[in-house]
Simulated assay, not measured.
Amino acid sequence: MQYVKSIGLNSNQQIGRGFNHPYDIAFSENNRIYVLNRMYPQSTDGIRVQICDFDDEWYGEFGHGPGDTNDKFLVPVCIGFNDEEKLYVTDESHHQIKIFDRDGSFIEAWGRNTSKITDLEAPSGICFDSAGNALVVQQFKGSILRISNDGNIVQTFGEPGSEPGALNLPWGICTDNKDNIYVADWRNDRIQKYDSVIPRKAGRRGPPKY
């Protein structure tokens, strides 16, 4: 593996070109890069998502924070595109998943102070299965939500604890090409794998096989 290049610069700006504490990235189908700037507790005014490409072209930014409206961020954590090119952003302090189109226009939010998944708590990692459902980590509940693209909970699994299959402050999540699920179980110092069972009926609860 060889180094290729770096993009971006540390500008310490609250708006405009230059990254300031980039935290997560996602790629759109047209190869643009979406960079989540989370900032840090002493300086939160530069929270935003920036759009650029690998040739250092800059296309704008959106979701400036900190802010209390559904289209703003407070403590954003992870970002990812679904198969409809909608960008999902988890915000652990708003207890929301915020959804934008790839131009940065706000579409909707799920979680607290919305009409869907109102008991969502501290979402962190997010990824998508082959059916287009979002898999979202609830770090403090020690659980994973599988959510359809219209905002219905398809499945909930995981519980707090240290036994196999239980979770203690989980964070990152991803799937492989067989839809197996991998969760970074932070406080338990391990990676856990769950099988690829995808329920088709909204509202079904119960874990995949650990």
Rank of each mutant, 00 (worst) to 15 (best):
F140C: 00
A26N: 14
I79E: 06
D195W: 03
E29V: 13
F100I: 06
A109G: 08
E108V: 14
N168I: 02
W186Q: 14
Q96Y: 05
G63M: 09
P199M: 02
I107T: 02
E92R: 08
Q192F: 05
P207A: 15
I198T: 06
D55A: 09
N70L: 13
K178C: 11
T175C: 15
P208H: 01
Q96H: 03
K178Y: 14
P164N: 14
D189V: 00
Q42P: 00
I25G: 05
K201L: 11
Q192C: 13
D129I: 04
N168Q: 09
R187H: 13
N10M: 04
G63F: 10
I126P: 02
D103K: 11
D195Y: 04
S143V: 12
W186P: 03
I15T: 15
N10A: 04
I181R: 10
Q14D: 13
V136H: 04
I147P: 03
K201Q: 13
S196V: 04
I117C: 03
N20P: 00
F157H: 09
A202T: 01
Y182P: 04
R204I: 03
P76H: 05
T69I: 10
T69A: 06
I198L: 06
Y194F: 15
Q155K: 12
N12K: 07
F157P: 07
I181T: 12
E85Q: 15
I47F: 09
V77Q: 12
I191E: 09
S28V: 07
L87R: 01
G111Q: 05
E29N: 15
R32G: 00
C174R: 15
I97Q: 01
N188S: 11
S162E: 12
E61Q: 14
N30S: 15
